[in-house]
Amino acid sequence: MEGLERIVSEHRLFQGLGPEFVNLAAGCAKNVRFNADQYLFHAEEPADWIYLIRHGQVALEVATPGRGAAQFETLGEGDIVGLTWLLPPYRWGYDARATELVRAIALDAKCLRDKCEVDHDLGYALLKRFLPVLVQRLQAMRLQLLDVYGSAG
């Protein structure tokens, strides 16, 4: 476990978090790897895991009938895959595929949710770390929606 705690504490999401919180979070964590083109999860599956990418790239995709999968975002080292773990009904809305070998920390979402319910200090500390990620993605999505390169540019 000690190795895992170190890995968890070194991830961007947990940097600067007190050891007591890191220990709590690490209690829900395990090391995982995905080969290229392996899926981390598919749309409509339960959002049981959160992935903190340590290495490699993950593509978030939405499949469109007749047009195959469209990638709408790629995530890399230091990024978090899966922001829906915190909100009911805890279900993925898109596919996540490793585009190359991916090493990640997987956090058991239910385990983490339960610990957050019990320890609101942990819950608040984690929320403060997840919220900026959400806002950054939202801002990026706004710019993406503008399709600025469309005709002008």
Binding site: R67, G68, Q71, E73, T74, R97, E100
Partner: peptide
Amino acid sequence: HAGAAWRGHVG
């Protein structure tokens, strides 16, 4: 925007 074949960044 990219199809599944694209290996680079999307975003």
